[in-house]
Amino acid sequence: MKVTVKVPASTANIGSGIDCLGVGLSKYLTVVMEDNDKFEIIFKQGFNRDILLDENLFYTGAKRIFAKAGRGFPLVKITMVTDIPGSRGLGSSASAIVAGVYAANAYLNDLFTEAELISEASLIEGHPDNVVPCAVGGFTISMMDNDVTHYHKIVPNRDLRFITAIPDYELPTKLARSVIPKEFSRTTLVTQLQRACFLVGALASGDIRQLEIATQDLIFTPARKDLIPGFDAVTSNAMAAGAICSMISGAGPTLIAFATHNLDCIAAAMRQGFTDAQINSTVEILRADTKGAVVITEI
């Protein structure tokens, strides 16, 4: 048996939509799992080192599904290829977990439903905001209740593009979360909730004209931006060049801008922002992925 899984990247914590809003993006992790006479994992393009088994989130996801089915991990060769950079706020962890649970389920002849797979993946990740867009694509609103993930999917405005400025340094999610204050004022929380609701309405209706105010985050961004050298220059450059909004992607350090025009100018301006901070970066213009995880099974 041979299973191939292709899973998109994602951006989450969209502005005011902390831990609940995400979008699938057109960068991908592809994993092939096939019968073999021994267990082995091969890392190809996109990996600068082999990942230890207990740190390999594809293996973690697949093992959880096999265990849920009462099965041990089969003898397989796993080949992994990616263009999603790790620890950059583009859903590399979630994409690996999703690939693992979907691949294992295909090996089990689709024993579990997609809803069950998404809930299991969210439990591993700890929150669903990256997992859901990696699994189903599009713009997603998600939440967890009693270990079950619930979500809605919206196809984004077809003209919307996502410009990512990826600096050449990592920002571990654990560090990014550690700087968040423990308490917030009632006014801050109410304003944040208003903006998040407005953001969902804007994206659901396709009216993206007011995304700038709707995406302004009062909670995570003020605490995290000092961990991202070049933040002010990159985001302000993006807006000056014509972006609709600009923010941290996920936990960072990637910065992302939403736009419908002047794409090359915005990309150049964002790159220059990091350059002015003496930081090398890779800037890409991405589309929304609306398919999510794709699984091909060969018997």
Rank of each mutant, 00 (worst) to 15 (best):
F184M: 13
F184G: 03
F184L: 15
S185C: 08
S185N: 10
R186N: 00
R186D: 00
T187K: 14
T187C: 07
T188H: 12
L189H: 00
V190F: 08
V190I: 14
V190N: 04
V190S: 02
V190A: 09
T191H: 13
T191L: 12
T191N: 15
T191Q: 14
Q192Y: 13
L193P: 03
L193R: 05
L193K: 01
Q194V: 08
R195T: 07
R195V: 13
R195I: 09
R195N: 10
A196Q: 01
C197N: 14
F198Q: 12
F198W: 13
V200R: 03
V200I: 14
G201K: 09
A202N: 10
L203D: 03
L203W: 09
L203H: 03
L203G: 05
L203A: 06
S205P: 04
S205Y: 04
S205H: 01
G206F: 10
G206H: 04
D207C: 00
I208R: 05
I208Y: 06
I208E: 01
I208L: 10
R209H: 13
R209D: 14
Q210G: 02
L211Q: 10
E212M: 09
I213N: 12
A214W: 00
T215W: 08
Q216S: 06
Q216T: 08
D217V: 11
D217W: 02
I219H: 06
I219L: 15
F220P: 01
F220T: 05
F220Y: 09
T221A: 11
T221Y: 06
P222F: 11
P222T: 11
P222A: 11
A223E: 11
K225A: 06
D226Y: 12
D226H: 15
L227H: 06
L227A: 07
P229H: 00
D232Y: 05
A233M: 13
V234Q: 08
V234G: 07
V234K: 01
T235P: 00
T235S: 12
S236L: 07
S236W: 01
S236V: 10
N237C: 02
A238N: 08
A238W: 04
A240Y: 00
A241C: 05
A241R: 01
A241D: 00
G242A: 10
G242F: 09
G242P: 02
A243L: 04
S246I: 04
M247V: 01
I248E: 00
S249G: 05
G250V: 02
G250D: 08
A251E: 10
A251H: 04
G252E: 06
P253C: 08
P253H: 03
T254S: 13
T254A: 05
L255A: 04
L255F: 02
L255I: 12
L255T: 00
L255Y: 05
I256S: 09
A257Q: 02
A257S: 12
F258W: 11
A259Y: 03
A259W: 03
H261P: 03
H261C: 13
N262H: 15
N262P: 02
N262C: 07
L263H: 11
L263F: 10
L263K: 10
L263P: 08
D264P: 03
D264L: 14
C265I: 09
I266M: 09
A268G: 11
A269C: 12
A269G: 12
A269Q: 10
